[in-house]
Write a protein that binds this DNA or RNA. Structure first.
Lengths: 114, 114
DNA sequence: TAAACTTATCGCCATAAGACGATGAATAGA
DNA sequence: TCTATTCATCGTCTTATGGCGATAAGTTTA
């Protein structure tokens, strides 16, 4: 039961990563584990919203949750997740530079043409 | 204008990838460029739905669109996207094997404990 | 035990996303 | 030119998502 195929997990992981607030949370947690009350003041979101985002990342098995007395501590479960983000950034940078290149070519042809 | 920051593009790319149908489309297109009428019969979705999904991937600059007579051909713009998916799969597999390991440990402790 | 603190969960709202059928625009062929 | 083909777009419906405040549940401290 709860048989999760790789492709289900794949979508779950990618969905968890496809939100700006959650990406910021991961970046924030890259500095080491933090409790929620430490995270809250760093984000302009309500406590319930942050809690929900943290839970989504936890459900996707990206964050580990440890209850310590009256506080809850979250940390990155597997730093491999940063490799994924780094690759996405790399693709985004490729796109940006291709766009810039296209812009230069267009400008050049406009100058020559008229 | 239309100044896209890396982090905007990052979210756009990840959102485009976080859907099972679109991941299937990418896999299907990994075999080379295909026109829409060739893609359609391979998917149990309406023509309008597939067209919309293709457009989302195109908007995220993941697919290239070439109009050829009365048909439209789509192809992978940058194979780097498969590296991303491969890394996500790798993370998912790590999660699955950790879950299996936890299951073994639990079972063992239950057998010993009682 | 009472009060304060920390965090998850609930209920609600507004917007986004995925699905479909119908329509529209463009091209190819008769 | 008429028809068929191909594909994008529109309108609509349903569900999912992100946001918030309020509440609940657990833990520490007074």
């Amino acid at each position: 039961m709860t048989q999760k195929s790789v492709s289900d997990l794949r979508v779950k992981i990618l969905s968890a990563l496809s939100d700006p607030t959650r990406l910021c949370l991961l970046e924030y947690l890259s500095g080491g584990e933090k409790c929620v009350c430490e995270i809250l003041p760093a984000f302009q979101r309500s406590q319930s919203t942050i809690s929900k985002h943290l839970n989504i990342l936890h459900e996707a098995d990206i964050l580990e949750r440890k209850v310590d007395g009256k506080r809850t501590v979250y940390c990155i479960k597997d730093p491999q997740v940063f490799e994924i983000i780094r690759m996405v950034d790399s693709l985004a940078l490729t796109q940006i530079s291709q766009l810039a290149e296209a812009g230069r070519i267009l400008e050049k042809s406009l100058n020559n043409g008229s």
